[in-house]
Simulated scan of single mutants.
Amino acid sequence: MKRKTALLALAGLFALSANSYAAGGGYSSTIIAPTVSIKNQWYQKDFSVPSSIEKTGKMTTVYYSWAYSRNQAGLMVSLCTSNNVACFNVTNAQSGSVDFSSYNIAPNQPLTLKAMVSGTGTMAPLNGKQSQVTVNYLIGN
């Protein structure tokens, strides 16, 4: 009986210490990646967020893909929140996932795709192609 009581007490403490998130959701957004035309300058474009998305809760896993018209030496690509609270370097993987869970970012916070070509000299414009995010989130406080 003591063991059962102790287990129930531990379960209760765990439930009290856990964040209270009732459910989850998700949405996808597609853009054309920003065109990069001058070296050493960041270009960015926001992914739109549907107006029906919750204001409370937090983003969890975000799946992404980005594309450009050609490979370009010095290309750097980042996926960030529009307020730059969290920013992930996704240069080495044109598709994948990033975990925003530890940042407590609201589900309705827009994400931004940023790109820059580092180096010297001039370059022909690097045209963006279709890029996408799928944002998963938990609803709650």
Rank of each mutant, 00 (worst) to 15 (best):
V85A: 13
T91S: 12
W66N: 05
K2D: 13
G119C: 15
S29E: 11
G12C: 03
K39W: 08
A124K: 12
F47V: 01
F88R: 09
S17M: 06
A86D: 02
Q44V: 05
Q109G: 04
I53F: 01
F88Q: 07
S101P: 08
I38M: 14
V77Y: 05
G74W: 11
L138A: 14
S20P: 14
S95K: 12
P50S: 12
G96S: 04
Y103F: 14
Y63P: 01
S65K: 14
S48R: 05
R3K: 15
A22Y: 04
V90N: 09
T134K: 14
S17R: 08
T60P: 11
A67L: 10
S131M: 13
Q41S: 05
V133T: 03
I31P: 01
N83R: 08
V49A: 02
A18C: 11
Q72I: 04
K39G: 06
Q109Y: 09
V90T: 00
L111P: 02
Q94L: 11
S37K: 08
S65R: 07
Q41F: 00
N89Q: 07
Q132N: 13
A86E: 09
A67I: 02
S29A: 14
T60E: 11
A11D: 00
S82L: 10
T91F: 04
V90I: 15
I31G: 02
P34K: 12
P107S: 09
L8R: 04
Y43S: 02
Q94R: 10
V98L: 10
A93G: 11
V133E: 02
L79G: 00
F100I: 03
P125T: 00
L126D: 03
N83F: 11
P125I: 00
L111M: 13
D99K: 05
S37R: 10
M1G: 11
K129I: 01
N84V: 08
N84W: 14
K129P: 00
